[in-house]
Structure formats: structure tokens, C-alpha cells
């Protein structure tokens, strides 16, 4: 066995690792529109719910349906974003959540702090709900931007 063969094999193994890592990173990336769209999907139903509460007529069923529509929209958005990355990896919801638990905890923590502050300042329930969901929406956006920036950085290092 020559030194050349040994080096070539080691290089090939390194390249395989790098290419696999690139595929994994690309599959974790979300499109640029996903952050703002996810934020809007979190915020809009909360605002609609706050605006519709206390109103009668058509708003009663609409108010009841809004949370479900919002959740459905979030699931559809996530699915579309995954398809648009161009790299499909089958992973369960629990697996995805486990990979993003730090961001998830940070966003939920920001929401909880906001809720505490609203309660402290005596803001009424509808206002608190809107404020909390605005913070959650912006948190999701920021989390997406931070994750994408990290992935881009890693991809640059691998290039």
C-alpha cells in the first residue's frame, strides 16, 4: 500500500463526512421568508382573538376557530419551509423539538417574562395575550435568523 493510497483514502473519508454534514445543515436551514411568516402566523390569530372577544354575531365562531386555524397555518408553513430547503430528512416532531429545545425554551421564557411583566403592570387579559404572542412571534423570527446565521457560518467553514 502506498502513502498516496492512504492519503487518498483519508481524504475521501474526510470529504464524505463534510458532504454529509453539508446535507444535514442544509436540511436544518429555513427559507428567509419563514421567520416573518411564522411570526405573523403566531401574532395574527392572537390579535384577531383579542379584537373579536366580547363581540357577538359572526365573531363568536370565528374566535373559536382562530386558534385552530393558526395552529394549522403553523404546521403548513413548517412543512412548506422543509420542502423548500431542497433536502428532505424524515424526523419526528419530538426529534425536531429535541434539536431546538434551547431556542424553544428561550422563546417560551421570553413569553413567560412578558406575561409576568404585563401582570405586574396590571395590563388587562386581552392586551397581555396580544403582547405575549407578539413577543413569541418575534422570538420565533429571531430564533430562525440566529439558527440560519449559525448554519451559514458552518457551511462557510466547510466550503
Amino acid at each position: 500500500m502506498t502513502m498516496y493510497e492512504d492519503n487518498a483514502a483519508a481524504n475521501a473519508l474526510r470529504n464524505i463526512g463534510a458532504v454529509k454534514e453539508r446535507a444535514r445543515l442544509k436540511s436544518s436551514m429555513s427559507p428567509a421568508w419563514y421567520g416573518p411568516a411564522a411570526a405573523a402566523t403566531v401574532i395574527v390569530p392572537a390579535v384577531g382573538l383579542a379584537w373579536g372577544s366580547g363581540r357577538g354575531g359572526l365573531w363568536v365562531p370565528v374566535t373559536l376557530l382562530l386558534p385552530f386555524v393558526g395552529m394549522g397555518a403553523i404546521v403548513a408553513l413548517a412543512r412548506t419551509a422543509r420542502r423548500m430547503t431542497g433536502v428532505m430528512v424524515a424526523a419526528s416532531v419530538s426529534e425536531r423539538l429535541r434539536r431546538r429545545w434551547i431556542a424553544l425554551l428561550a422563546v417560551l421564557g421570553a413569553g413567560a417574562v412578558t406575561w409576568g411583566l404585563c401582570a405586574q403592570f396590571g395590563i388587562r387579559a386581552a392586551g397581555t395575550r396580544v403582547t405575549v404572542f407578539v413577543v413569541l412571534g418575534i422570538g420565533v423570527w429571531v430564533a430562525c435568523a440566529v439558527r440560519n446565521a449559525g448554519i451559514r457560518q458552518r457551511l462557510r467553514e466547510l466550503a
Partner: peptide, 25 residues
């Protein structure tokens, strides 16, 4: 090397779009 890169890229996912494989490899 190119064939190996394509196969390695696809081994890390279920399915990949042509452009994603091109950029990845």
C-alpha cells in the same frame, strides 16, 4: 470523487432537490 460526494450527500437525507445536491457537492 464526484459520484462519491453525490452518494454521501444523498445518504444523509431521504430525498434532495437537484439544486441542493449541486450546491452541497
Amino acid at each position: 470523487p464526484t459520484r462519491l460526494a453525490v452518494i454521501a450527500f444523498l445518504s444523509a437525507c431521504d430525498e434532495a432537490e437537484f439544486a441542493a445536491v449541486r450546491d452541497g457537492c
